[in-house]
Design a protein around this nucleic acid. Structure first.
Lengths: 134, 134
DNA sequence: TTCTTTTAGGATTAATTTGTCCTAATAGAA
DNA sequence: TTCTATTAGGACAAATTAATCCTAAAAGAA
């Protein structure tokens, strides 16, 4: 998720970024990050090219997609929809013991990821409203 | 977490419950659940005894402990305190891109787990206010 | 008391996940 | 155009995690 935002902030079709560089910036093991980027690349969220000056980048179209897409691909089928206790039919009618304290969290979070594009998150990083490092 | 609540609701020193039975009730792979219970047993959250009529149970003292203890032991060092993007110094001053939608709700959830005992969660299940199954 | 049955606990094996290494591609230099 | 350097991608290896199997404990029956 921060890898994609890092790309959104720093990369472009003419300014690709190497997996290793991203890994260092966001402090993730670089083989691990490389695998994530590969997955995202297969799913056409990020684009890539090999060779010198190669690396990863996001097309403008990709940047318009909601950030939730990234979460779905990486974390698999959205954990944001499931009951934290794993109850199949957890709902307001048959709530699990932590339903009412967790449900609003998940819902709000999900909504934000769903309604905002990668680009709009990146915009806030660029303007200094939010941060990606440290 | 639901395993412990299941014990809190159904078990006592004179009514121990087998790992397999709990696993079936809460629909978790029984070897996996057995390992979790073993861990909780080592950490003295749940008590156990071997042999026929043996099984797991919670002492009244154990039931008085906050549910957060269970989460800490099972999920390791609390994920509830960490930034979802993994930023070391994510805060209101240097927020990650999703900080403001996640932070308040994480805090609420943590507080609930911290301030309420296992027994008090179990009480609500017993009264039919919340549920553990399906 | 001793033997059998039952259940947790730990050791071993299997599966999954993460990391390493090698191959394919491509840009730039010669 | 060809060769070299560089970077992603996939194949293989290591490590971690989950599942199976065997051992130890304990209750109840004989």
């Amino acid at each position: 998720m921060n890898a994609v935002l890092y790309l959104a902030v720093h990369s472009s079709e003419v300014n690709k970024i190497r997996a290793k560089e991203i890994a260092e910036a966001i402090k993730l093991p670089s083989p691990f990050l490389a695998k994530l980027l590969q997955t995202l690349s297969r799913e056409n969220i990020v684009s890539s090219s090999k060779g010198p000056t190669g690396g990863f980048f996001l097309t403008p179209q990709a940047q318009q997609r909601p950030l939730l897409e990234v979460v779905k691909i990486i974390d698999g089928t959205d954990r944001l929809d499931e009951c934290v206790l794993g109850l199949k039919k957890c709902s307001s009618e048959k709530p699990c013991p932590v339903h009412f304290s967790v449900q609003p969290l998940k819902k709000t979070f999900r909504k934000e990821l769903e309604e905002n594009s990668i680009a709009s998150f990146a915009e806030k990083v660029k303007s200094g409203e939010t941060y990606l490092f440290v």
